[in-house]
Design a protein around this nucleic acid. Structure first.
Length: 793
DNA sequence: CCCCCCCC
């Protein structure tokens, strides 16, 4: 050891003197020298660096010798700001990924070799600018690196934002190992290993997904060929994106550096290696001619290619695979100038965007005989079939396929044509103009089914359409335009209807497809005749009323003849010409309207009960809140009431007067019996005897009757007196209590006159009422039935 | 910050 050397060692020792004695430091240096006896190129300085590194804290990265070139084998985890120089022996493709924060990132790997060893260099998003300056075989210097332990435990160097790559001339270091890019013929690949190959792409499979435990693996297989043979080359997971980023197409020629060969199932398969690269370029590889099977000549055969026009698309069906995972299958029909064939698509393939009329190319399918397929044959896409929508075609073939008749959208008047056979499969575009509730039913085999009926309209007509099972869950609402493919026609109620089941497909029509579709408002206007309440006639159909709600009764439940429970609710609506009772049934009883709400009623059933018309909201009727612009054109509730309710003096009341307004003072009140008991089944008055309540109508013994409050009064104004009877709610309002409370008082006291004094207190109060007049035959006078108590003073 | 293994 020279004095100069010793001074240098002592000087460097100062950096770690807190952590180790000088004696131990020298011993470490000797050990390092022995360990590196087969690396004579290491300088004294580098050896001392390695000793110091041993004592440096991991966080306290050694940066005293910034960007000095380090021999690869001397790199130590934690070294920062170092450079390496060597032969670039591999460049990977750029992979894209998404960081946990959702940002797009890029990563690529280089392998650099110097005389001491080789190492992986990791390039990140910001370093990609150096990519197009480098090539395998270059001598490069990479600056500002950090040494880290990689995923597999080996050391690697990572580039940072300020890292750089310089390409250096060969003279810099002629001693470096040479780079040799040996190209192997496919037929010579018989053993596991890494090979450089130049090939032509014959087929690119559709992306497949395989669920393996927690992970979903993605796979695309390329069928590749050279003049000596054909092999499969697999892209895994993120590598599958290379098909798009490198714009790989069938017939392209590519060079693959470091394709990884593996024996599997007695076959060699190639896959993309993490440090290999696919380079798309014009290479001299023989081309292949594709044999395209004419669909009319289909027979049982594997690995066939067809090109045709999509003439039918059925809906995707989801099923459970034997491994418990979900599977998807979809049928389409493909037609060329010689015939049509049913094609079955599986899983990921069912998600490929396609429309009727698109041209589809399917390679690697197999044709099987199938009893269920119309023409007896079915093309099943195997596990590595390739599907291309609207592929590049030569003009001649394109012209032929464009002649294929794709049955387009059928107008609804054509669907309705009874001269056509039922059971036709048609495509329609229409607007939903009525929707009914979903109904559940049970099939013969005991399974549950669902059905919902809607009406679809276009500019030519309206067709009733039944949606079955999962199709009831359409998200489109009243007024929306929808397209239904493969709906089946069938005769129901003497008319042609449409049935939308499993294989029918509901989609959103294109703008072009709805150019002629009238708006919901226009369809509605054409369909329904505007009426006021006074214009309505018995049994008239397709009427439309714009009314406001006057009154909402409670829901009554009843039992249908078939034993099912039913619900009914009456509401009273009015316009400026009159008022009318409307019956709502079952789910329709759950209304969100309130008194005064503006509502639209379309196509109600109009029936006559005694002298009055009544409306009922049945199947095919709609009741809905008026839209704001509709409501704005209607009179307010007060305006309607003022027009409707004519105020009269008592002496002017006539026997047919309906909803007249009377203002009078209570001069007499019946303070005796005001509670009546009713049969809950028949709503007929019943009386109690020693056996309890028995209904004369139904003969049932009644446990708990319904109670009805009726209060008779005599009203007086300056012109005369009239008897006015308050029922139910109006009676409750009159004496400011509830029927329930009155019943409770009677039950407690057992005294039918317990309410007398409270009732008599009403004498002298002035009331304003809306009432109907009727002639009492017995007393030969006119009486009033109170419809509404407006005010009590 | 990527993840080299992995499927019929």
């Amino acid at each position: 050891m020279t004095g100069e050397n010793e001074d240098y060692i002592k000087e460097r020792y100062q950096e770690v003197k807190e952590k180790v004695t000088y004696k131990d430091f020298l011993k470490d240096l000797e050990d390092i020298k022995i360990e590196n006896v087969d690396a004579p190129f290491l300088t004294q300085q580098q050896l001392i660096d390695m000793v110091i590194e041993k004592y440096a804290e991991h966080e306290n990265i050694q940066q005293t010798h910034t960007n000095q070139i380090q021999p690869i084998s001397s790199l130590i985890e934690g070294n920062g700001n170092i450079s390496i120089q060597g032969r670039l022996i591999s460049i990977s493709n750029i992979k894209t990924f998404t960081t946990k924060k959702g940002r797009e990132g890029k990563v690529a790997n280089l392998t650099v070799e110097d005389n001491s060893g080789k190492i992986r260099v990791v390039m990140w998003t910001d370093n990609m600018k150096y990519m197009n300056r480098i090539e395998e075989g270059n001598i490069i210097k990479v600056n500002n690196l950090e040494v880290r332990k990689g995923y597999t435990g080996d050391l690697e160097v990572q580039m940072k934002n300020n890292s750089s790559i310089q390409v250096l001339p060969e003279e810099v270091d002629p001693s470096l190992p040479k780079y040799e890019e040996k190209i192997t013929n496919l037929s010579d690949i018989t053993e596991d290993g890494e090979y450089n190959i130049i090939v032509r792409i014959k087929k690119i499979s559709t992306l497949r997904e395989i669920i393996k435990g927690e992970k979903t693996l993605q796979i695309i297989t390329l069928e590749i060929m050279d003049k000596t043979g054909t092999l499969e080359f697999t892209l895994w997971n993120k590598d599958t994106k290379l098909v798009d980023t490198l714009e790989l197409k069938e017939h392209d020629t590519i060079k693959i550096i470091k394709a990884r060969a593996q024996q599997r199932y007695d076959q060699i398969t190639l896959s993309n290696s993490w440090n290999g690269r696919i380079i798309k370029n014009e290479y001299d590889v023989p081309d292949f001619e594709e044999e395209i099977l004419k669909i009319g000549y289909a027979e049982e055969k594997e690995d066939v290619t067809i090109i045709g026009t999509i003439t039918k698309i059925y809906d995707t069906i989801t099923f459970t695979k034997t491994d418990g995972n979900e599977g998807h299958v979809r049928s389409i029909e493909v037609t060329d100038e010689t015939g049509s064939i049913r094609v079955t698509l599986w899983n990921k393939e069912t998600e490929i965007e396609m429309r009727k009329g698109d041209i589809i190319k399917i390679e690697g399918g197999s044709i099987e005989f199938d009893d269920y397929a119309g023409d007896g044959y079915r093309l099943n896409t195997g596990w590595n079939a390739s599907i291309t929508i609207n592929p590049e075609l030569d003009t001649k073939l394109r012209e032929k396929l464009e002649l294929v008749d794709t049955i387009g959208i059928v107008k609804i008047e054509n669907v309705l044509d009874l001269n056509e056979d039922e059971g036709r499969e048609v495509d329609v575009v229409g607007r939903i103009i009525t929707t009914n509730d979903t109904r559940e039913f049970e099939r013969g085999d005991g399974s549950k089914g669902q059905i919902k009926s809607i009406e679809l309209a276009d500019e030519t007509g309206i067709v009733r359409t039944s949606l079955w099972d999962e199709k009831v869950d359409i998200t489109e609402k009243l007024g929306d335009a929808i397209k239904i493919e493969n709906a089946r026609t069938r005769i129901g109620q003497g008319q042609m209807e449409l049935s939308v089941g499993k294989s029918s497909r509901i989609t959103t029509p294109t703008d072009e497809e709805i150019v002629n579709l009238p708006s919901y408002e226009n369809i509605e206007q054409d369909r329904y005749n505007d009426r006021t309440i006074s214009q309505l006639e018995e049994n008239e159909t397709n009427t439309k009323l714009r009314v406001r709600i006057l009154n909402i009764n409670e829901i009554n439940t009843f039992t249908r003849t078939d034993g099912r429970d039913g619900r009914v609710r009456s509401i009273y609506v009015a316009d400026e010409t009159g008022e009318i009772q409307v019956s709502l049934w079952d789910d329709d009883t759950e209304i969100k309207f309130t008194k005064g709400s503006a509502i639209i009623i379309e196509n109600p059933n109009i029936t006559r009960q005694n002298t009055k018309l009544r409306l009922s909201i049945g199947n095919g009727s709609t009741i809905r809140a008026a839209r704001q612009e509709e409501a704005e054109k209607m009179l307010s509730l007060t305006e309607i009431e003022n027009k409707l309710y004519v105020e009269k003096y008592i002496e002017d009341i006539e026997e047919d007067d309906q909803h007249i307004k009377i203002k009078g003072t209570i001069s007499e009140i019946n303070s005796e019996k005001i509670i009546y008991t009713m049969c809950p089944n028949c709503n007929i008055g019943i009386t109690q005897d020693e056996n309890g309540y028995i209904c004369n109508e139904c003969g049932e013994k009644i446990e708990k009757p319904n109670y009805l409050m009726i209060i008779s009064t005599t009203l007086q104004d300056e012109t005369g007196t009239v008897q006015a009877t308050f029922f139910r709610k109006d009676a409750e309002e009159l004496i400011s209590t509830t029927t329930e409370k009155v019943v409770a008082i009677y039950e407690q006291t057992g005294d039918e006159s317990a309410m007398s004094s409270k009732l008599e207190d009403m004498i002298g109060h002035e009331v304003t009422i809306i009432a109907n007049a009727n002639f009492n035959e017995y007393d030969e006078d006119i009486r009033l039935n109170v419809r509404q108590l407006v005010i009590v003073v």
